[in-house]
């Protein structure tokens, strides 16, 4: 399968290990990701908070370029995916707005392609069958709390690839690689998202609720598919622990890092060095009996 790949600003900087692991896993399971040339920022929360037209127009430029490539778009970042998919749905439904925005674009978007999340593309039954075939070491002993957050599952009318209240795609991916995802209550709760800098006290409270619940249910790591969730969960866990008077130290992984680890793809371990929270306690929990013979 071939897709137009939209990395987004975070995957080029704070989430570079998500970018690396996405490409490594894509290569390993035959999902070819072709960069969208000269892509621009999706506008993220800031555009849809301040200027609705801009929040559709910024993604529209990327959609127009991707349409010229003749491929559906894959956006690993949950925020980019959500904004691009929301714009796609609105542009397909609202011809007047589409014509108005297309007048400003060098490459117009006519509605011929669709936007998908990397989670969606990497957890189809065909993709998971390929992952399963490629496993060299099952991650037995790893007990991830699968954390979807908001932007991958809501609003379901627009996204709709997983259940908004009890999503399963990450859990299925983790089971496929031999990990044992825990049942917990906060898999689709918000981390505070873009308030990371401007209202960090909100993020600290929410991160505390999330990690504390994951621990209570026996998780030894959290797995995510969103760079904003990753930054907030890693950066605010120390302050959250202090606020709650609990030890909330918790390694956090991108799901692609763990898929790559189970398949032992070359270069995957380099990703772990980029984390702000040491991941070794979780890696040490993986038992030796997961190793596949031959």
């Amino acid at each position: 399968m071939k897709y137009a790949y939209f990395p987004g600003c975070s995957l080029e900087s704070t989430a570079k290990e998500f970018q690396e692991s996405t490409q490594l896993v894509g290569d390993a399971i035959g999902v070819e990701l072709v960069h969208i040339d000269d892509w621009n920022c999706c506008g993220a929360t800031s555009a849809h908070n301040l200027d609705h037209r801009l929040s559709v127009a910024l993604p529209a430029r990327n959609l127009g370029i991707a349409e010229g490539m003749g491929m559906d778009v894959v956006a690993p970042c949950a925020a980019c995916y959500n904004r691009m998919r929301s714009a796609e749905v609105e542009l397909k439904a609202n011809v007047k707005l589409r014509d108005d925005i297309n007048a400003d674009l060098e490459k117009p978007f006519t509605g011929a392609i669709s936007v998908k999340s990397s989670l969606e593309v990497f957890t189809t039954s065909e993709a998971l069958a390929k992952v399963s075939d490629g496993i060299r070491k099952k991650l037995t002993g790893l007990k991830p709390a699968c954390y979807y957050g908001c932007l991958l599952v809501r609003p379901p009318k627009v996204l709709g690839f997983d259940d908004p209240e009890n999503p399963q795609s990450l859990d299925k991916a983790m089971e496929t690689i031999g990990a044992e995802p825990v049942e917990w209550y906060f898999k689709n709760e918000c981390c505070g998202a873009s308030f990371g800098l401007s209202k960090s006290e909100i993020v600290v409270k929410l991160v505390g609720d999330i990690i504390s619940n994951a621990k209570k249910h026996g998780a030894n790591c959290i797995v995510t598919a969103c760079p904003l969730c990753m930054t907030n969960l890693e950066m605010r866990q120390a302050a959250a622990g202090k606020l709650r008077g609990e030890d909330l130290t918790m390694p956090v992984f991108y799901f692609t890092e763990l898929m790559g680890l189970a398949m032992e793809v070359r270069g995957i371990k380099k990703c772990f060095a980029s984390h702000l929270v040491d991941v070794n306690s979780a890696l040490d929990a993986i038992t030796a009996d997961g190793a596949m013979v031959g």
Binding site: E12, T14, D38, N40, C41, S46, A47, L54, S194, K199
Partner: peptide, 20 residues
């Protein structure tokens, strides 16, 4: 909150992307 969003969009307007 507004200042953050305004600076964010200014980046996009200047560079086309956000430089963190």
């Amino acid at each position: 909150v507004v200042k953050f969003h305004e600076e964010f969009l200014r980046q996009v307007q200047m560079f086309g992307r956000v430089h963190e």
